[in-house]
Design a protein around this nucleic acid. Structure first.
Lengths: 225, 225
DNA sequence: GAAGAAGCTGAGAGCCCGCTGAGAGACGCG
DNA sequence: CGCGTCTCTCAGCGGGCTCTCAGCTTCTTC
């Protein structure tokens, strides 16, 4: 877990360095913008802590250059409270969070952790079909306000259907995508699980989101039935 | 590409506004729920970014009202980490994604893009002949607003005819393409099924899309009869 | 106008497809 | 070890789809 600290004030840089190392991070220090960009180009940092007031190339420049180059590493900006840039600017120029000096190390640590948490695997948005919804990341689904308790297999099946709304998906596709291409059992399993699903997401609500297309497969109604 | 940002904190609203404009979005700002609903009623937004903590009508209300009105515009919820609503609630009340404050602009942008990507309807090519239409992917067909219920064989036959409008197709071709080259039964089956089709797509509408070309085959009128 | 060819249609048989209930096996948990 | 849950198999059933067949209508040709 590598962190780059771009800071020209020796005492601050040193304090942050020691503190982060004590917390188990690997730390690189750059005392100006040019060196910072060089390091960023050749290393993969988890977070960049960036002072705005730097000799030569300032933090503003660094941040823009970074983003322009398509680097999306989270950036935490350090601003002097009375500085010429304010918080709004910091976000505007592509930073992910900011901290005004003087700051407490505990707060800095907390912010860094928050950034790391956030840059963790991107959650995909919630899938919807009318009032029927499913959150792949949180592994939850429901109809309107009502939560639905699905088994893993049922969940996988519904997720696949929701990713192909208003399209007929063949049982062969379902078998391959939900059960896996290597599945060797009775293909009838698809019908069985569609049955289970209907009894949870449709029957209790008097709806019919999953339609049977005889001889072809199943279709999930994009409006939820 | 219009985005509505519902946010009462001036500096955040401004930063998001500027950031999104820089990315080429059109941005409207609403500082409370009532104004937001007013704007939504009269504009067609691609995405709505909605803070939950608002003066007056809160984000919770706005989202439910929206959904209750049948508006399906993707909603991205902003929640305070320590707020009274948590992320789980956001999904239940009809949001499509959520982000906890403080959030990074890069992440916000990525999430907005993800929502846009998902809400972009993947158009499947629909076959048409006048008001007669058939969607191969969804396996649906109809005449005008009226849905037609076809059996698989009827559907296959109509699909083939629609792919060769204003062209005479021989019964031999139909047999080979719709029934399969290996078909060994009575070729009369084509006439039988053309009959079935006519009774569903023509007779009830007083039309005649499928014309008989005696001694040659059938022709589907490209204007639907 | 008659005869034959081509196409249409109603009736019905058989069967395929999809649905369901019962239950066995695997697995995890207390 | 007992219990509950989940996954999957299996067999039966019910309905609708496909197809055959025979009789009828329409068109063509002489």
């Amino acid at each position: 877990m590598q962190v780059l600290v771009v800071e020209d004030e020796q005492n601050i840089a040193l304090a942050v360095d020691r503190g982060l190392r004590a917390e188990g991070f690997g730390v690189d220090i750059a005392e100006d913008g040019t060196k910072a960009l060089g390091l960023i180009r050749h290393n993969d940092y988890a977070v960049i802590v960036l002072d705005l007031m730097l000799p030569g190339r300032n933090g503003y420049d660094v941040c823009r250059t970074l983003r322009a180059a398509g680097i999306t590493t989270p950036v935490l900006i350090l601003t002097a409270k009375d500085g010429e840039y304010d918080e709004a600017d910091a976000l505007d120029l592509g930073a992910d969070d900011y901290l005004t000096k003087p700051f407490s190390f505990v707060v800095l640590l907390a912010r860094i952790r928050a950034l790391l948490r956030r840059s963790a695997p991107q959650r995909s948005p919630v899938l919807r079909a009318g009032d029927l919804w499913l959150d792949p990341a949180a592994h939850r689904c429901g109809r309107g306000d009502e939560r639905l308790e699905l088994t893993p297999r049922e969940f996988g099946l519904l997720e696949f259907l929701l990713r192909h709304p208003d399209t007929v998906v063949s049982k062969t596709d379902l078998l391959a995508q939900v059960w896996g291409a290597w599945f060797e059992g009775d293909p009838n399993i698809v019908e069985v699980y569609v049955g289970y699903l209907r009894r949870k997401i449709d029957t209790p609500f008097g709806r019919s989101a999953i339609e049977t297309v005889r001889g072809v497969g199943y279709r999930l109604d994009g409006k939820g039935g």
